[in-house]
């Protein structure tokens, strides 16, 4: 039986009928078509599916779509404005912090959450904030440098 939910994804309101066993990750990728959110381990260990749910970074593979009812979701597609990359996205490009790209959207969303909470984090705090995101290319150093280099580190 499908359940009707209302969600706001990247500022756009959706009314969707979802099955109870659908995860938020699969809803985003296969029902809404936002494939920037990646499907990795599906057990909450790799962080590739990170989205911001009501202001908190979560692994969308472990959230049921029905439980996102009434909530606001931000995915990587919601960051660019008027065709311009978000400063964190630009920093990742400028610093070469993207290799295969699979972890990138999760890394950027975790970094965004950190910089909103703490506009001038130390390197240790940056490393801790992305500790739930695995990069199997092991490109952590450039990812950390990219987050350090974000101009003004944030727009609140």
């Amino acid at each position: 039986m499908r359940k009707l939910i209302n969600v706001t994804i990247n500022g756009v309101e959706y009314e969707l009928g979802v099955k109870p066993n659908l995860t938020l990750l699969d809803l985003l990728r296969y029902e809404v078509g936002l494939t920037g959110t990646k499907k990795g381990c599906e057990t909450g260990e790799c962080g590739a599916c990170t989205v911001i749910l009501d202001g908190k970074p979560v692994t969308s593979c472990l959230v049921l779509a029905v439980q996102a009812n009434g909530k606001k979701i931000l995915t990587i597609e919601g960051l660019e404005k008027d065709g311009n990359l978000h400063p964190i996205q630009q920093a990742f490009v400028d610093k070469g912090a993207i290799q295969c790209g699979f972890c990138t959207s999760g890394m950027i969303l975790s970094a965004k959450h950190l910089l909103e909470q703490n506009p001038s984090p130390s390197e240790a705090e940056i490393r801790k904030s992305i500790s739930g995101n695995l990069c199997r290319c092991t490109g952590y150093q450039k990812i950390v440098q990219a987050i350090i280099s974000v101009p003004g580190r944030t727009e609140k």
Binding site: G47, K56, P57, T59, L62
Partner: peptide, 9 residues
């Protein structure tokens, strides 16, 4: 416990 994301959940 776990990771920052899992601790938020």
């Amino acid at each position: 416990t776990a990771s920052p994301h899992i601790r938020e959940m």
